[in-house]
Amino acid sequence: MALEGLQERYVNFYTDFAFKKLFGTEVNKDLLISFLNALLSGEEEIKDLTYLNTEHLGEHEEERKAVFDVYCVNEKGERFLVEMQKAEQRFFKDRSVYYSTFPIREQGPKGNWNYELKAVYTIGILNFSFDDSDPNYYHHEVKLVDMKTMKVFYDKLTYIYLEMPKFRKTENELENLFEKWLYAISHLPALMERPKALREAVFEKFFRVAEIACFTQQERVAYEGSLKNYRDWYSIAETAEYRGWERGHSRGLSEGRAEGRAEGRAEGRAEGRAEGRNEEKRLIAENMIKMGMTVDDVCRITGLSMEEVENIRP
């Protein structure tokens, strides 16, 4: 495998290899602790984390298993699921809720128990946007709320989603440690040196660990493979979205001539986005099958049904 093609100084955070190296290893857990404390804005002050098994089985053998990106527990017994998602999935919210049931259920000990639970946090670092209603609203924090009083009903279950494409602050606009973390994550592969605004010692380590030149030969090979998978995924998704938009846009314009040009364009854009997403999922699934991934994994990642995936298989 050719390694000389790598031009960037630092890794792409959205590759599986980089995410797990930076946030999912014992030797670098201080990076994850800093990120989580900045994310939670003083609500939590995590002093230590212990990484837990990322593969969890259901209570019965026939039940579907869950494979987490990063799963850890702090010194208080609170659980943190940290997921990095490269592209939009049809049921990614459902997946988040489903995954959060595992750290809840595993807290139930054998024998007598009064049902007291420790807090569970599910955190998604998303390389896509799922909410088009507000281009500046990128930090979603979701809890169980009483709809009449609008007060938090249960504060031990929290879902946090970060729509990274919506974070557009420049280096000079960064106001706090949380924004500095988002800037570092989103700009990492485009940087050639550590930005002056990121003076904190934790970022000195972050950029040192992320520097490709410091990798072993084995790590470079692993990163190259992970980066290729990311680029293939991105290319397939972008092509599928464009093709779907092109067909929907053309159909919308055609219908718009009869029913009104403005209405036709709007409908074309809406249909194009929907058709593009479906075509994107089919193409991604087809490529994943060619890469040897299982039907279960393809369904989990794309959101397609097992029947839809089976129909794609050659």
Rank of each mutant, 00 (worst) to 15 (best):
Lys21Ala: 01
Lys93Leu: 14
Ile185Lys: 03
Lys166Ser: 01
Leu52Met: 13
Val11Tyr: 07
Gln7Ile: 14
Arg269Ala: 06
Ala197Pro: 08
Tyr242Ser: 09
Glu75Arg: 05
Phe167Val: 07
Leu40Glu: 02
Gly225Trp: 04
Pro189Met: 08
Glu141Lys: 15
Arg199His: 13
Gln217Gly: 12
Leu6Cys: 11
Tyr138Asn: 06
Leu174Cys: 03
Thr54Phe: 06
His140Gln: 10
Gly264Leu: 04
Glu63Ile: 03
Ala237Tyr: 09
Leu162Asn: 03
Phe92Arg: 07
Glu241Asn: 12
Met291Glu: 14
Thr25Leu: 06
Lys148Leu: 13
Thr170Pro: 00
His56Cys: 10
Ala285Ile: 10
Ala258His: 14
Gly260Ala: 08
Glu280Asn: 14
Ala262Gln: 14
Gly5Gln: 13
Leu117Asp: 09
Asn136Glu: 12
Lys110Leu: 13
Thr158Ser: 12
Phe91Pro: 03
His249Met: 14
Gly276Glu: 02
Ile289Asn: 02
Arg269Gln: 10
Glu267Thr: 12
Phe91Gln: 10
Ala190Gly: 07
Trp233Gln: 14
Leu117Asn: 09
Gly225Thr: 07
Leu253Glu: 12
Phe23Val: 03
Asn176Val: 06
Val295Thr: 11
Arg282Lys: 15
Asp296Met: 08
Glu255Thr: 07
Met293Ser: 11
Tyr138Phe: 15
Ala190Glu: 14
